[in-house]
Simulated scan of single mutants.
Amino acid sequence: MFVRLVVAERQGGLLMLMLSLSSTLSIFVLILLGCLLSFAGLVRRGADEVLSDYVFYVALPVEIFLTTLRSDYTPDVNVDAYVQAYGLGIFVLWIMIYVIYKVCLKKSLVEVGLNFIAVGQTNTAFLAVPIFILLLGDSALVVPIIIFQSVVLTSISVFVMEVSSFSQIGSLSAFLKKTLLVVFKNPLIISALTGSLISQIKLPHMIDTDFFIIESMDMIADTAAPIALIALGASFYAGRVTSTMRNDCNEIVLGVFIKNFLHPAISFVVGQYIFGLSGLLLFSLILISAMPSPKNTFIFAQAYGVSVQKFNLVLLATTCVSFFVVNVAGYFFLPHVV
């Protein structure tokens, strides 16, 4: 009897691995397509920025609005514990990042803050959303992480990077006003909050999929994932690196280890042994932690005058490695999702 159970469990794991591979391969093929289109010159220079702007300001806000509008968590889905577990995992991870980059590597606070983003946060909008949709059916569990990252984590990261420039800003209140403006200009936050508010009002005609406005929004939302992935691939080639990046090889490898392996491991320990998560929530926590560096990493690097090429390489490398980590996580944890 025991042998049969073991065999059945292994077969279930293999089936889930095939599902995970099928889903993630389609995602990474689109990323590769974007890179190849840019390499072949079929995507004009700057086109990746146009596509990214469309995804960030139009398609993803619509997709997130609809997701939050329709979210209907069952009582056994403890979303608060899920977000708290993610937050505690990030806290532990950020302490390690500070010690490694500030104490050991003697990096500036600007670089420490950038690494809080590059290896201490996740690519929610451009990669987690499509992966969660394909593996779990929707991106509802990505939305609270998007809000938490944008409102809390990005604010703290910006605070760390701006500490050295307080004298130019003038006062703490001016800095806080600047930070809040950056955060709440984020269309993903606005769309998530709006969708959540309307879902609480429970207007039947707003949630009805036959309502013509919702149908139009669904068509726009369907474009978010494929265009986001193609834009992500195109941006890699647009930010191609030179031989001088060999000097940063060790730091890039370190970033990949922290983001792709250490972060999911910390999330697993925190989620299972501190918050008692299991099934869907534990797998979602590990899955969101296994996502690569956020796409806005190189944007912050540009803004603060730090090596854009280095952080673009971190983004590229963590994206490639995440394919392996996501599928390993799917093999071990997806069979237990109920």
Rank of each mutant, 00 (worst) to 15 (best):
I131Y: 05
D48G: 04
V58K: 09
R44W: 09
L37I: 12
L134E: 13
I64M: 08
D76P: 06
V129R: 00
Q121A: 04
P144D: 07
K102Y: 14
A81L: 09
S71Y: 03
F148W: 13
Y98V: 09
S139Q: 14
V62L: 08
Y101S: 06
A140T: 15
K102I: 01
I27G: 00
L32W: 02
V55S: 12
S155E: 10
F126S: 00
R44G: 15
L109K: 10
V142N: 08
D48K: 04
S155I: 08
F56R: 08
L69E: 03
G113Y: 11
V119C: 07
Y101D: 08
V29K: 03
D53A: 15
Y98S: 06
L127F: 05
L69K: 03
Y82T: 00
L32Q: 02
I145R: 04
A128G: 04
V79Q: 02
S71K: 10
Y73H: 11
L109N: 15
A128E: 01
V43K: 12
F28Y: 13
V103G: 01
Y101H: 06
E49Q: 14
I147C: 10
E49I: 12
L51Q: 04
D48C: 06
A85W: 11
D138P: 08
L69N: 04
V43T: 13
Y86E: 03
L93E: 04
V152K: 01
D72H: 11
P130K: 03
P61L: 11
V77F: 11
V43P: 00
L37F: 14
F132S: 15
